[in-house]
């Protein structure tokens, strides 16, 4: 008599893909398109910042449109970085422990970076 209580059908079902693979691909592309548009704007912003003193730089970034675009940029940058670094680690780091530690470190760094960046932009935009 079989010791397994599950039916053979129950054991066989649900062993396909996790239906999650496309999500990584899509978000990587969506953030890529966002950054494709935002990076030229960032370049314009940085080249302008080079010529400005603190007060003028602060005022420039505090403008609602600039602050909004910066918020989107910060979130897109750290999300895109997390997705990219995740794949690099998956490909080259084969130790189970080191893979886990690195993946965790990347995710925590990216979350922290995004949180700190968003907070800084909000403080510039709303403060003073």
């Amino acid at each position: 008599m079989s010791t397994q209580l599950r039916t053979p059908m129950k054991t066989a079902l649900g062993l396909g893909s996790a239906k999650q693979g496309l999500h990584h691909f899509m978000v990587q592309r969506i953030t890529a398109v966002a950054l494709l548009l935002l990076v030229p704007w960032l370049l314009w912003l940085v080249l302008k910042l080079v010529t400005l003193d603190f007060a003028a730089a602060h005022a420039l970034l505090a403008q609602p449109w600039n602050a909004s675009l910066l918020l989107v940029l910060v979130i897109a940058v750290f999300w895109h970085a997390q997705l990219g670094l995740q794949v690099v680690i998956e490909d080259y780091v084969h130790g189970k422990g080191s893979n886990l530690v690195l993946q965790l470190a990347v995710k925590l760094f990216c979350f922290l970076g995004a949180a700190a960046g968003v907070l800084a932009v909000l403080k510039i935009a709303l403060g003073r």
Partner: peptide
Amino acid sequence: TGIALAAGTLVLLCSLLALA
């Protein structure tokens, strides 16, 4: 360059935090 830019996010972050 992706890895370098991920490290380079510190430039963006430090600048924003400094301005704040």
